[in-house]
Design a protein around this nucleic acid. Structure first.
Length: 773
DNA sequence: GTATTATCTAAGTCT
DNA sequence: TAGATAATAC
């Protein structure tokens, strides 16, 4: 079979092993997508009905891409019949079909985490709990991890251990909040993200007929990024695949970066316990990156204790070394990255889309954006405040959601007085109380008001008007297509006028355009044919809304926007590759994150994250850190990441010292960069001791805190250094001071180093130690 | 009930 | 810094 010829031996074996359980341990860049794609193609070529194949991918976009590649390979559009997508989207689809078994309507709403948090905030308020103790995000993550481990709210409240832990943390009411939260979700006909998986498990557990139906329907299961599945996902797969055990999982323990949302690496490690017949394939040849990149990444990941034994190698060229640079501020870091991109574009004829800038946190994107804009380099940011996260989009979507499911209370409250229609907080509070007394949802109560014409108060009239408006939209749900209805909603609700008028304000134009973009998206949806039901079927708003909650930035295709530099978090870059990769902000407390320093497991996850970042690069990887950075509006000084000292110097082109001087403009008073050598760890220890000596009584907790302004800037010895002295520099070694210039902050020394030549160093950075006066 | 102003507070990664 | 909420004035 010709399609197999394009695979290496292990890849081919993995593809040809179609019956029974198999696990593919796929190192970074080893062609796992290729194997998955070919395996599905191979199954189809063997005559397996594509309707019997379920493939769970990490993003919906990945699924789409895989699908079109399969279509090319097998030269047929049959691949569209493979069920392919993320866990959340595939099982949301199944839940909608089987909703009645769970006493939900098929058009239930999916609450995103903002909805979830706002609901929790309300519950905390209603229960008159301390909102300092019960922060929505904390409570939600507690609930979320319970759900991911299939602990229902009833189980939770009956679980002595969990209750004890909460009590000890002075958060004994989390069980109660969980219960109320679930009840409110149900009342709103809503599920949160975790419910999609939780309820799928409930569905398959409590309805043997349904389970059997899907076990028969799907004969082959393929799961990508298996290292990032949680218990809930694991059990769904296990249940569905129990009949045929034709299960292929692909993953790499070294790239597990989602433990924070319940991903359980044990799912990979325990595969052979669950499936004694398991065949394991190891893909160890990296086809993506240069030897230098593979080498540096391997050296990094070696610092983690727990991992599956494997050796990633490549026959690619050696390539350039990984360049490490430092700057004084985050803005300069941005400038440096932009300048480098500009240079490479011209020298190496690279396109903008060949570059990616990866960072640990979304907040870091701003300085980079500004720098790219200054250099006229087109870019696109993925994640962060994504399109669907913008206020104007959420407002519109809230209307659309409300029309599809009027019991969706989050949406109702969002738009009941937007645009302003004279229904204020006091009215809403009254409505809530009355609805509660009658045991009705807010919407149901408002409906009875509409039917009951005896209400004459002007506010009552406004409520009736609002209810009637929503109801009139509902009447068109099945007669108008999604676009026609959405357009009508925007106009009739007053949103269009409001945003049109706001066009004069600074942000207004953007908002209006965003609204237009959303409408264009809905229009496109309305005009595409429905795969399953043929061209005659109307594409309704109902249908459109089903996908929206699970749409992410990574899923949106950007046809005309191809040629742009990509900015994203490392998490979002998983599975992607770029010729040139910049990893920025390699600083303590940022990467690794401050919050990950408490435990080895968390720190190891950060290290895997670094590994993922490094292995995105094909040709060149650039690392950088900055001596200072704006965080929450304040300037904070930062120290180089501990990961830098783990870099094997033989792969590194260290430019940090040069950068320090290069960036030293008299104006810039920002920043303290403590130079740390990467060449050997003993030296590193030494430098640390000197730092500690300077700050008398530096407690461990101080060490982990971001240094405050003004602290650490002092260097006792730097003031006493004079020309003629013999000094020691951590990286350049011994040398003799030739001359001292400048005052205070800008005091610098020209030093003739024994082995490194003559350098001019800013004393406040250089951390010179005096050897001989 | 609403508009304006003051104050608070968040602070990580994602479906 | 910026978004959300609380307090205040109208």
């Amino acid at each position: 079979m010709s399609l197999l010829e394009e695979l290496n031996e292990v890849q081919r074996e993995a593809v040809e092993h179609t019956e029974g359980p198999s696990m593919i341990i796929a190192g970074a860049g080893s062609g796992k997508t290729r194997v998955l794609t070919y395996k599905i193609a191979h199954l189809m070529a063997k005559g397996v009905d594509p309707f019997q194949i379920m493939a769970l991918t990490f993003t919906n976009k990945a699924a789409r891409e895989m699908r079109s590649r399969i279509e090319t390979i097998v030269n047929s559009t049959e691949a569209r019949n493979v069920w392919m997508g993320t866990f959340h989207s595939i099982f949301a689809r199944i839940l909608r079909m089987e909703a009645d078994k769970l006493a939900y309507p098929a058009n239930f709403t999916i609450y995103d985490s903002d909805d979830s948090k706002s609901l929790i905030r309300k519950i905390v308020k209603e229960q008159q709990l301390d909102d300092k103790l019960y922060k929505p995000s904390n409570v939600l993550s507690r609930i979320s991890s319970a759900k991911n481990n299939l602990i229902s709210y009833v189980d939770y409240n009956n679980n002595a251990e969990l209750m004890q832990v909460d009590k000890e943390n002075a958060r004994g009411k989390i069980g109660l909040i969980y219960s109320l939260y679930q009840q409110r979700l149900r009342k709103a006909f809503a599920m949160d993200f975790d419910d999609l998986l939780f309820n799928t498990n409930v569905l398959l557990r409590d309805n043997p007929d349904v389970l059997i139906k899907y076990q028969r329907r799907f004969q082959y299961f393929l799961v990508d990024e298996y290292q990032d599945t949680n218990y809930s996902q694991y059990l769904i797969v296990k249940r569905l695949a129990a009949q045929t055990e034709n299960l292929t999982v692909v993953g790499d323990d070294a790239q597990s970066i989602y433990a924070f949302r319940g991903a359980n690496i044990q799912n990979i490690l325990n595969m052979n316990k669950d499936y004694p017949d398991l065949r394991t394939f190891k893909l160890e040849q990296n086809y993506r990156s240069t030897q230098n990149i593979v080498g540096v990444a391997n050296a990094i990941i070696k610092n983690n204790k727990k991992q599956i034994d494997k050796t990633i190698w490549t026959s690619n060229i050696e390539g350039d070394k990984i360049r490490l640079s430092s700057t004084l501020s985050d803005n300069e870091e941005g400038n440096m990255v932009a300048r480098t991109i500009f240079g490479i574009k011209h020298e190496e004829h690279a396109g903008d889309s060949d570059f990616a800038i990866l960072y640990r946190t979304n907040a870091q994107s701003r300085a980079l954006e500004e720098a790219l804009r200054r250099m006229n380099i087109p870019y696109r940011i993925y994640g962060g405040l994504s399109f669907y996260g913008r206020k104007e989009i959420k407002d519109i979507l809230a209307y659309l959601r409300l029309v599809v499911n009027p019991r969706d209370e989050e949406s109702l409250l969002r738009v009941i007085n937007y645009p302003k229609r004279g229904i204020g907080q006091t009215t809403i509070d009254k409505l809530k109380v009355q609805a509660n007394q009658q045991g009705l949802s807010l919407w149901e109560y408002m409906e009875t008001m509409a039917a009951n014409s005896s209400i004459a108060r002007s506010t009552g009239m406004r409520i009736v008007e609002f209810v009637n408006m929503i109801k009139s939209f509902q009447l068109s749900l099945n007669t108008k297509n999604a676009y026609e209805l959405a357009d009508a909603i925007i106009k009739a609700s007053g949103i269009f006028t409001l945003l049109y008028q706001a066009k004069n304000e600074d942000e207004g134009v953007m908002r209006f355009e965003n609204m237009e973009e959303l409408l264009a998206g809905i229009k496109e949806f309305s005009e595409t044919e429905n795969d399953e039901e043929g061209a005659s079927s109307l594409r309704t708003l109902d249908e459109f809304m089903q996908d929206v909650a699970l749409q992410t930035d990574a899923d949106t295709d950007n046809k005309e926007e191809e040629e742009k530099v990509t900015l994203m978090t490392i998490h979002a870059s998983k599975g992607l590759e770029f010729p040139y990769v910049f990893i920025v902000g390699l600083e303590e407390n940022l990467f690794p994150s401050l919050m990950a320093l408490n435990s080895r497991t968390e720190l190891e996850e950060e290290r895997r994250l670094f590994y993922v970042a490094l292995t995105r690069g094909e040709k060149k990887v650039f690392l950088s850190y900055s001596g200072s950075r704006y965080k929450w509006g304040k300037l904070q000084y930062s120290e180089p990441s501990r990961f830098l000292s783990e870099l094997d110097p033989k792969y590194i082109d260290d430019q940090t010292a040069e950068m320090l001087l290069f960036n030293n403009s008299p104006k810039s008073t920002a920043g303290v960069v403590s130079k740390k050598p990467l060449s050997n760890s003993r030296l590193k220890m030494k430098s640390k001791t000197t730092t500690e000596q300077q700050n008398t009584k530096k407690t461990p907790s101080n060490l982990t805190k971001a240094s405050e302004i003004g602290r650490g800037a002092s260097n006792d010895q730097s003031h006493s250094i004079q020309a003629g002295m013999e000094v020691f520099h951590d990286r350049f070694g011994r040398g003799k001071v030739v001359v001292i210039e400048g005052e205070g902050e800008n005091r610098k020394a020209t030093v003739d180093f024994n082995n490194s030549g003559t350098k001019t160093l800013l004393l406040r950075f250089a951390k010179l130690r005096i050897l001989k006066q």
